[in-house]
Amino acid sequence: MKRLFTILLLAFSLALTAKYPDPASILRAIDANTRFTSLKSTTRMVIKSRRASRTVSSINYSKGDNSFFSEYTSPPRDKGTKMLKLGGNLWIYNPGTDRIVQISGNMLNQSVMGSDLSYEDFMEENSLLQDYNAVIEGEATYDKREVWNIMLTAKRKGLSYPKKRIYVDKERLLPLYEQWFSSSGKLLKTVRSDQVSRIGNRWYPKHVVFKDELKEGSGTDYYVDSIAFDLKIPDAIFSKGSLKK
């Protein structure tokens, strides 16, 4: 009897797995879309505060998961400000004061240029496969596309967001809607992606809306104006020396 039960259970779970693909393979596919050896992009961030809306443009370079450099090109106030992330460290260069300041402690809580993203969010690494265990919890239609509803839980300590729920486009294997949770399950941030287009062999969103769910406001729009993957970027860019240049 007991044995029968076990077999039934096994069959049942097999049926489930048959219904859904292997979640790890989905994460792998997402990583293939979103991760890169290197990247260069020009982006615009539209920040809506209670009083005004403004656009911050930047040129960004990334290499692997750990190196990131960006230089702001507008508005005039922020022009020339540079940001460098190397591993677990973050520096900001301010041209007005000609100072390089390391962002740490409470400062990491602050939002980047007043957006709904904090410096901490910038520090996140972006391999879902490496960082999270995934369970497919269902299917849905989101923004007229068929999506998998996947629950992610952190594999290791030290991630800012221990739980994430992502709705992944079944065909393009790209998250269209993400919910980032605290360890107690409180929704902290949401990320909505649209204008998904084909870039080389990837699907990539050209418009992303970040929203800090604890703050009031309607979120920050992030537009990708141009993007190129897997270029040759000189290593010198990802050094503190390049901040002052």
Binding site: K157, G158, L159, S160, Y161, S182, S183, S184, K186
Partner: peptide, 11 residues
Amino acid sequence: KDSSGAFNAVD
């Protein structure tokens, strides 16, 4: 921030 550096929040 919890001891591992993750955000935690409650209402």
